[in-house]
Design a protein around this nucleic acid. Structure first.
Length: 558
RNA sequence: GCGCCUGUAGCUCAGUCGGAUAGAGCAACCGCCUUCUAAGCGGUAGGCCGCAGGUUCGAUUCCUGCCAGGCGCACCA
């Protein structure tokens, strides 16, 4: 990590300075001073470059008038060379305007840090297990899975950027009743028999059955259960491989494909039972083995081993969680569909039963439903009927970039509607293109700059020349990126990156229309041209970094 | 019945660790290409931030209750 990266940004410096001033104002100010102070960027330009309401917040605990506190801060800040003015407004807001020459700092930092600009250390060294999708290997990935494929992958990138050590994991339910139904469905399809009522019915089952027979004609010679199991095992491998290849082409990669079956190898499950027993929350009732999750707020206790001796689903859940913790993960993130929100209570309680802090060690994200519209109508999803929209079909319709971007741009806890027609359009209403276009536009300008002899780069910043309102806005927006990344990581909300990048693209487009970057006609290249081109270069870098956190490409031409 | 999520502009949605005139895109209307990508930019218009209380100097944001919609509440996986 370069020196420029570890050095503080200007707003961090100023907020640290304010806290310093407040702590030093001891005789007058006796109340407790907060650890952190976030300077906000005011919406209104008249309120300066940065603003804080700290004086208002401290008025009550200190017993001082807010304006009085504001004056203390003002007096302490005004001597700084990087600050042009400090104004007190209204009841006690403090509005800070930076010196023009100091605003070049962020551009320097971007050009030095390049791809690493935006990275931070709020999650430094934290080991995170990020589990997502975890679809049954009994069919293709559908829309709900696709939302997680995009959001989960992006969250992994964001957490990594914040300093966390992230392991992406896909939990494969490769044992149990569903697998057996899958095998029976494939078998009946291959033999031209009626499908089991509660089996899998999609058209993909026929295709898969054919593929199995073609590749393994010997299964037809088997019979009964042996044949069912062969269909199951071969089908499982093919289906899993299909999911893996689709995810690969979607740009979502996993570090570990974790087999549920493996939880029962080498007595690991027995070990987990012993661990939970030793913590005192396991009991026997009616011949079954239970975990007393109600000790920690779950609405009912959960069966792990059923009275017939078979494993309940929760048995695997508990062993899997213990596996994650024993593999050294501090934070286990689960990404679940809305229909699984009932799991939150039991997973948190499970962690507590294991002696962990459910608020810290377990983080569960619940993703609401995704609907898809085409031609003004909802495309219905029905796995049973076999008319599911798969990840592949979505990508076929709109492409990887548009699919990923759109799925990430909304908070996961709100239901979302994807309109295929909009995603295919190339206008403002399609935010993917809006952002990518900004990047491509900058690249075009920079190509032209070289042609007309305008030089640009870290030695061509000339911050004192960038006095236009649009330039100030753009520089300010660039400086926000590291905070946005840190916030997205802490809140587990990658959509914040998408929204930021849209905002930045908008600011750039406005700059572009008001500030001519390159010389007009026979005008000769000046330092202002170089300064603006350099600002363009920095903007392109930040847009590219933001898009990279979303797993979306930043094209140089469109 | 109990629990989780949602309710912001005509539509699709952001925002809020409580702050200064509530944001974007679309749709409507009016403008901007003889020079850097118009896949762009500017402007007009559009809001009891679901309803009612509470806490606060200040609430769209926090708390409580209600209303509406979505999704769950197995010795299924």
């Amino acid at each position: 990590m370069s020196a420029a990266l570890s050095s503080l940004s200007i707003q961090d410096e100023i907020s640290a300075a304010i806290l310093q001033i407040l702590r030093a104002a001891k005789p007058e100010l006796t109340c407790e001073i907060p650890e952190k102070l976030a300077l906000e960027r005011p919406k209104n330009r008249d309120h300066g470059d940065y603003a804080t309401s700290i004086a208002l917040a401290l008025a009550k605990p200190s017993g001082l008038a807010p304006r009085k506190i504001a004056e203390i801060i003002q007096a302490g800040l005004i001597a700084r060379r990087d600050i042009d003015s400090v104004d007190i407004a209204g009841p006690g807001f403090i509005n800070i305007t930076l010196a023009k020459s100091s605003q070049g700092g962020v551009i320097v930092k971007i050009l030095q840090s390049r791809k690493s600009f935006g990275q931070g250390n709020v999650l430094d060294g934290v080991k995170v297990n990020l589990e997502f999708i975890s679809a049954n290997p009994t069919g293709p990935l559908h829309l709900g899975h696709t939302r997680w494929a995009a959001v989960g992958d992006s969250l992994g990138r964001v957490l990594t950027a914040a300093g966390a050590k992230v392991t992406r994991e896909f939990y494969v339910n490769d044992r149990g009743v569903q697998m057996d139904k899958f095998g029976a469905s494939l078998q009946s399809a291959a033999l031209g028999q009626a499908r089991p009522e509660d089996g899998y019915h999609g058209a993909y089952i026929d295709d898969l059955a054919k593929e199995i027979i073609t590749g393994n004609p010997e299964v037809l010679k088997l019979s009964g259960e042996e044949q069912t199991n062969s269909f199951r095992d071969i089908g499982y491998k093919l289906q899993l491989a299909q999911q893996q290849s689709v995810l690969d082409s979607f740009g979502t990669h996993f570090d570990i494909w974790f087999s549920e079956k493996s939880l029962y190898d080498n007595n690991f499950f027995t070990h987990c039972q012993e661990v939970l027993k030793s913590k005192g929350h396991v009991y026997q009732l009616d011949g079954a083995t239970w975990l007393r999750t109600t000790d920690f707020g779950d609405d009912k206790d959960r069966v792990m081993i059923k009275s017939d001796g078979s494993m309940a689903y929760f048995a695997s859940d508990s062993a899997y969680y213990i596996s994650k913790r024993e593999r050294g993960f501090d934070i286990c993130i689960y990404m679940l569909g809305a229909d699984h929100h009932g799991y939150v209570g039991r997973l948190k309680a499970l962690a507590a039963c294991n002696g962990d802090d459910p608020e810290y060690n377990v983080h569960i994200l619940i993703g609401q439903m995704v609907k898809i519209m085409e031609g003004g109508e909802e495309v219905k999803l029905s796995k049973r009927a076999g008319t599911i929209i798969t990840l592949e079909e979505l990508v076929e319709k709109v492409g990887v970039d548009a699919a990923r971007y759109t799925l990430i741009r909304y908070p996961v806890d709100t239901p979302m509607v994807m309109d295929v027609d909009i995603l295919r359009s190339r206008t403002n209403e399609n935010p993917v293109y809006y952002v990518q276009y900004a990047h491509a536009r900058i690249c075009a300008v920079l190509r032209n700059a070289t042609d007309v002899g305008v030089t640009y780069g870290a030695d061509q910043i000339h911050p004192e020349l960038l006095l236009h309102e649009r330039e100030r806005e753009l520089i300010g927006a660039l400086g926000e990126f590291p905070r946005v990344v840190a916030g997205a990581a802490q809140l587990r909300e990658p959509h914040r990156i998408a929204r930021y990048v849209e905002e930045l693209a908008g600011v750039y487009h406005r700059f572009y229309s008001d500030c001519r970057v390159l010389p007009l006609g026979d005008e000769s290249p000046s330092e202002l041209h170089s300064a603006r081109a350099t600002l363009c270069l920095a903007t392109a870098q930040v847009i590219a970094n933001g898009l990279d956190l979303l797993g979306v490409s930043a094209p140089e031409k469109m």
